[in-house]
């Protein structure tokens, strides 16, 4: 079993995503929510970091927050899984605990 890490801050504003990636174990899941979903965007200065993390961690982003921020499917980094609220709940269930990076 592993942990679910949630990130709700923009990677361009705070280093929450960077910290979540750095301090989470291999096999962890990282879920981007609220302003955290900007980390799922292609072609940004944070893309390389996110892609690098996907070597041994799974990356998710919450659909409703992507929609509000006009991040369409074709702009999302390949390999990032889009989940809805039900998917969020599934992730919480599937992991030992949830750790929030604010």
């Amino acid at each position: 079993m592993a942990d679910l890490h949630t990130v709700n801050k923009s990677p361009f504003d705070k280093n929450s995503l960077e910290a979540a990636i750095k301090f989470s174990q291999a096999g962890s899941s990282i879920l981007l929510i609220e302003d955290g979903v900007y980390g799922a965007m292609k072609g940004t200065s944070a893309e390389a970091m996110v892609k690098g993390a996907m070597g041994d961690k799974k990356m998710y982003a919450l659909k409703s927050d992507l929609m509000a921020r006009a991040i369409k499917d074709d702009r999302i980094i390949e390999g990032v899984t889009v989940v809805d609220y039900a998917g969020f709940v599934d992730l919480v269930e599937a992991n030992d605990k949830v750790q929030a990076w604010l």
Binding site: S10, F12, D13, D35, Y38, D65, M67, A68, R69, A70
Partner: peptide, 21 residues
């Protein structure tokens, strides 16, 4: 500037977020 540029990105849809668009 900085993340403020996101304010002007077109195509925002808050229908599933309970926030005013």
């Amino acid at each position: 500037m900085d993340d403020g540029v996101f304010q002007l990105v077109k195509g925002s849809d808050t229908s599933q977020s309970d926030m005013k668009n």
